[in-house]
Deep mutational scan, measured.
Amino acid sequence: TFVEFNGKKVEYPTPEAAEKAAKKLAKKLNLKVTKKNGNYKLE
């Protein structure tokens, strides 16, 4: 499962880990999380 932000793509071993990381990053970077095709994107 990938988390995409600032043009970077980071892969996580589980969807749970990706979701957790996405939410944490979104909060830190003041972005919102969108889920697309099972992957997460911060914008």
Rank of each mutant, 00 (worst) to 15 (best):
residue 1 T to K: 07
residue 1 T to L: 06
residue 1 T to D: 02
residue 1 T to W: 15
residue 1 T to M: 07
residue 1 T to G: 07
residue 1 T to P: 08
residue 2 F to A: 05
residue 2 F to R: 04
residue 2 F to K: 03
residue 2 F to Y: 13
residue 2 F to Q: 05
residue 2 F to D: 02
residue 2 F to I: 11
residue 2 F to H: 06
residue 3 V to P: 00
residue 3 V to F: 04
residue 3 V to R: 00
residue 3 V to L: 07
residue 3 V to S: 01
residue 3 V to T: 01
residue 3 V to Y: 03
residue 4 E to W: 08
residue 4 E to C: 11
residue 4 E to L: 08
residue 4 E to K: 03
residue 5 F to I: 07
residue 5 F to N: 01
residue 5 F to D: 00
residue 5 F to Y: 13
residue 5 F to K: 01
residue 5 F to W: 13
residue 5 F to Q: 01
residue 6 N to G: 10
residue 6 N to V: 05
residue 6 N to T: 03
residue 6 N to Y: 13
residue 6 N to K: 09
residue 6 N to F: 14
residue 7 G to H: 06
residue 7 G to K: 06
residue 7 G to F: 05
residue 7 G to Q: 05
residue 7 G to P: 00
residue 7 G to C: 08
residue 7 G to I: 01
residue 7 G to N: 09
residue 7 G to Y: 05
residue 8 K to Y: 14
residue 8 K to Q: 12
residue 8 K to R: 13
residue 8 K to I: 14
residue 8 K to T: 11
residue 8 K to M: 13
residue 8 K to W: 15
residue 8 K to E: 09
residue 9 K to Y: 12
residue 9 K to L: 12
residue 9 K to Q: 11
residue 9 K to R: 14
residue 9 K to D: 03
residue 9 K to V: 13
residue 9 K to E: 06
residue 9 K to H: 08
residue 10 V to A: 07
residue 10 V to R: 13
residue 10 V to F: 14
residue 10 V to L: 12
residue 10 V to N: 06
residue 10 V to C: 10
residue 10 V to Q: 09
residue 11 E to T: 13
residue 11 E to G: 10
residue 11 E to V: 14
residue 11 E to K: 14
residue 11 E to L: 15
residue 11 E to R: 14
residue 12 Y to P: 00
residue 12 Y to F: 13
residue 12 Y to R: 00
residue 12 Y to G: 00
residue 12 Y to D: 00
residue 12 Y to I: 01
residue 13 P to N: 09
residue 13 P to A: 12
residue 13 P to T: 09
residue 13 P to R: 10
residue 13 P to V: 07
residue 13 P to Q: 09
residue 13 P to G: 09
residue 13 P to L: 08
residue 14 T to G: 05
residue 14 T to N: 10
residue 14 T to P: 07
residue 14 T to A: 03
residue 14 T to Y: 05
residue 14 T to C: 05
residue 15 P to A: 13
residue 15 P to K: 10
residue 15 P to Q: 12
residue 15 P to T: 09
residue 15 P to H: 10
residue 15 P to G: 07
residue 15 P to V: 10
residue 16 E to A: 11
residue 16 E to T: 08
residue 16 E to N: 08
residue 16 E to Y: 10
residue 16 E to D: 09
residue 17 A to I: 09
residue 17 A to P: 01
residue 17 A to M: 12
residue 17 A to H: 07
residue 18 A to V: 00
residue 18 A to F: 01
residue 18 A to E: 00
residue 18 A to D: 00
residue 18 A to I: 01
residue 18 A to W: 01
residue 18 A to H: 00
residue 18 A to G: 04
residue 19 E to F: 15
residue 19 E to Q: 09
residue 19 E to H: 11
residue 19 E to C: 08
residue 19 E to P: 00
residue 20 K to M: 11
residue 20 K to C: 09
residue 20 K to D: 10
residue 21 A to L: 03
residue 21 A to V: 08
residue 21 A to S: 06
residue 21 A to K: 02
residue 21 A to C: 08
residue 21 A to W: 07
residue 21 A to M: 07
residue 21 A to G: 04
residue 22 A to P: 00
residue 22 A to E: 00
residue 22 A to H: 00
residue 22 A to L: 03
residue 22 A to N: 00
residue 23 K to F: 15
residue 23 K to V: 13
residue 23 K to R: 14
residue 23 K to I: 14
residue 23 K to H: 14
residue 23 K to Y: 15
residue 23 K to L: 14
residue 24 K to T: 13
residue 24 K to G: 10
residue 24 K to W: 15
residue 24 K to Q: 14
residue 24 K to F: 15
residue 24 K to Y: 15
residue 24 K to N: 12
residue 24 K to M: 14
residue 25 L to G: 01
residue 25 L to A: 05
residue 25 L to H: 02
residue 25 L to M: 09
residue 25 L to D: 01
residue 25 L to E: 03
residue 25 L to Q: 04
residue 25 L to W: 09
residue 26 A to E: 03
residue 26 A to M: 04
residue 26 A to I: 03
residue 26 A to W: 01
residue 26 A to D: 01
residue 27 K to T: 10
residue 27 K to R: 11
residue 27 K to M: 11
residue 28 K to W: 11
residue 28 K to S: 09
residue 28 K to I: 12
residue 28 K to V: 10
residue 28 K to T: 10
residue 28 K to E: 13
residue 28 K to R: 13
residue 28 K to H: 11
residue 29 L to K: 05
residue 29 L to E: 04
residue 29 L to C: 10
residue 29 L to S: 03
residue 29 L to R: 05
residue 29 L to N: 06
residue 30 N to V: 04
residue 30 N to G: 15
residue 30 N to K: 11
residue 30 N to Q: 10
residue 30 N to W: 05
residue 30 N to E: 06
residue 30 N to R: 09
residue 30 N to M: 08
residue 31 L to T: 03
residue 31 L to E: 01
residue 31 L to H: 03
residue 31 L to N: 01
residue 31 L to K: 03
residue 32 K to Y: 08
residue 32 K to D: 04
residue 32 K to C: 10
residue 32 K to F: 08
residue 32 K to I: 14
residue 32 K to W: 06
residue 32 K to S: 09
residue 33 V to I: 15
residue 33 V to R: 01
residue 33 V to P: 02
residue 33 V to Y: 07
residue 33 V to A: 04
residue 34 T to V: 14
residue 34 T to A: 07
residue 34 T to S: 10
residue 34 T to Q: 07
residue 34 T to W: 06
residue 34 T to R: 06
residue 35 K to N: 10
residue 35 K to G: 05
residue 35 K to H: 10
residue 36 K to T: 14
residue 36 K to H: 15
residue 36 K to W: 13
residue 36 K to D: 14
residue 36 K to F: 15
residue 36 K to R: 11
residue 36 K to M: 14
residue 37 N to H: 08
residue 37 N to L: 07
residue 37 N to D: 15
residue 37 N to R: 06
residue 37 N to T: 04
residue 37 N to F: 07
residue 37 N to G: 11
residue 37 N to V: 04
residue 37 N to K: 06
residue 38 G to S: 05
residue 38 G to N: 08
residue 38 G to D: 06
residue 39 N to D: 11
residue 39 N to W: 09
residue 39 N to V: 15
residue 39 N to G: 15
residue 39 N to C: 12
residue 39 N to P: 01
residue 39 N to Y: 12
residue 40 Y to D: 02
residue 40 Y to E: 01
residue 40 Y to S: 01
residue 40 Y to H: 03
residue 40 Y to L: 08
residue 40 Y to R: 02
residue 40 Y to N: 02
residue 41 K to Q: 14
residue 41 K to A: 10
residue 41 K to W: 15
residue 41 K to E: 12
residue 42 L to K: 02
residue 42 L to Y: 01
residue 42 L to V: 12
residue 42 L to M: 04
residue 42 L to C: 03
residue 43 E to S: 10
residue 43 E to R: 05
residue 43 E to Y: 13
residue 43 E to K: 05
residue 43 E to N: 06
residue 43 E to Q: 09
residue 43 E to F: 12
residue 43 E to L: 09
residue 43 E to C: 10
